[in-house]
Design a protein around this nucleic acid. Structure first.
Lengths: 154, 154
DNA sequence: TCCAATTAGTGGCATATGCCACTTTCGCGA
DNA sequence: TCGCGAAAGTGGCATATGCCACTAATTGGA
């Protein structure tokens, strides 16, 4: 056993979350590896897929990502020809995103791999437990946090 | 509401976890900002703190991090003088890590900020709920996943 | 004793994420 | 209609993480 796992530390919700995310991330990444996509890219492509040519801002909001981070993450997918962007017809500030035919095909391919990982995970923890965990995580994600304005003026 | 959040997608345990991690990560990052540390760095420094001059491998294992990733993450902390490394006396392959006095001071400073964030989070979700969530996440982290060797030879 | 397999880290490369400073467009009120 | 403030992205910079190919030390046999 790893002695370095003192209880005091594991009380940090953020650290615990990241730790689990690293673990699960690698698992899904491994499962998706044959497709050449990472778990994050799969999630992003899927999000684009379910959206109706979503604007970047909409995607960022849905995934709770920084808009610029989304822009960066999108680049390799555009470079590899899975995704393409185009300006909104009515508002030139808005850039919409959609999958290319290859992107669609890649998504279909990845979904098969993803399903196996998802199934294995749920077999281990139980579909019900998994659903509860996701619900709890979604609740955290939608939480209205905000540090109570530290020093309230002078 | 964000229409782009179709139910189909949120069924991915990995995507849901990352989404929550981004959200919570920003919250803790904001809270720790005055100290100049990121949430990840805080967790790492804390881990070094509770360990007894832990070897890099031990830290990586405890945090479920890739050893090389740990090495990279450690660099800015070493550069800023919060952490230092030294070779193990008996096994020169092993590199041990410890906090410098400044690192200790920075940790103390950061713990105050962290406490406020931790408290605010637990006030929102409830200490008990938070504990349950951490337990569930630890369970996920310790899961014995492993894709059942895809193609079992020829 | 000497070499093969193992263990612990390092460096390079690529993606994942954020923040900040800008630039371009819009929307709106004077 | 002019011009200012808001909205949507982009680029640069820095950290977070992983994988892979290597190098240096160790450990076990033969």
């Amino acid at each position: 056993m790893t002695e370095a796992q003192q209880p005091g530390f594991s009380r940090c919700n953020n650290a615990t979350l990241r730790r689990a995310a690293r673990r699960l991330g690698r698992f899904y990444d491994d499962a998706l590896a044959p497709s050449g996509l990472k778990g994050t890219q799969f999630g992003l492509i899927f999000q684009i897929h379910v959206g109706s040519e979503p604007a970047m801002g909409a995607i960022a909001e849905a995934l709770i990502m920084d808009l610029s981070a989304l822009g960066h993450t999108l680049k390799p997918l555009i470079r590899d020809g899975y995704v393409e962007t185009f300006a909104d017809k009515d508002d030139r500030r808005i850039k919409r995103v959609r999958l290319t035919p290859q992107g669609q095909a890649k998504l279909d391919e990845a979904i098969k791999l993803w399903s196996a990982a998802q199934r294995q995970f749920e077999d281990k923890v139980g579909a019900e437990q998994a659903a509860k965990l996701r619900a709890a995580l979604d609740a955290v994600a939608d939480l209205d946090l905000e540090m109570a304005a530290a020093a309230p003026s002078s």
